Simulated assay, not measured.
Amino acid sequence: MTGITITLRALHDGERRMEHDLLAAADRHRAEHEVHHVATDVARWSHEHIERLVHAAPHYGLDLPGPTNQGPGLWAAVREKTAQAPGRYPEAGLALLHDLRDLHLAATENSLNWEMLAQAAQATGDSRLLDLATACHPQTLRQIRWTNTMIKTLAPQLLTST
């Protein structure tokens, strides 16, 4: 296995986790409408990245599984009802910050892998790999900017409220 295939596999795994974690955070924080809607939207980018990686994988001798079906299930319905409960509690804000931090770190790891892949593609003259990284990396950078902005916006109030 080459460094390129290892990085492709790491990106595939990272984007699958990112999609799952974004959708889970969207469900957990349904009462925070901006978080819920934006997390759901940017999870689609990771879904698209997975599809692109799966499509490119055979060229590099890999067989990667496609995106998982993230359809609603029993637990999603339970979380939705819980999120609709009246009133807010301080622990919810801390849980939101924790989720945003974890999402930020996961997106940053994916970003570094996209950057490494792009650099390898340039070094080897692999236009297929460079096109893949060029198409996906900007969306990952936007995921990072979104989580960072949300943390900057929410942290002062949530960490200092009693």
Rank of each mutant, 00 (worst) to 15 (best):
Y89M: 14
T147S: 06
R17F: 05
R79D: 01
P86W: 13
G3E: 11
H98Y: 08
V78G: 00
A107H: 00
N148A: 11
L117P: 13
N110P: 12
P138Q: 02
M18W: 00
P67I: 05
R9E: 12
H59C: 09
Q139T: 13
A118G: 12
E109A: 12
V54H: 13
A121K: 02
Q157P: 15
G61P: 07
G66E: 10
T68V: 09
R44D: 13
T82S: 09
R52V: 01
L64E: 05
L105G: 07
P90C: 08
E115G: 15
A26F: 01
H12L: 00
T162P: 15
A25P: 02
R30V: 06
A121V: 01
R30I: 11
A106Q: 07
T134F: 01
K152H: 09
A135W: 06
L100M: 09
L96I: 00
A133I: 03
A118K: 08
G71S: 04
A76P: 04
L105D: 10
N69V: 07
E51W: 03
I144W: 02
K81P: 02
H29V: 09
H59A: 15
A85Y: 07
R16S: 08
G125H: 11
R79C: 06
P72W: 10
M1V: 13
P156F: 00
T134I: 00
D63N: 11
T124L: 08
S46V: 01
L105C: 03
H37E: 15
A43W: 00
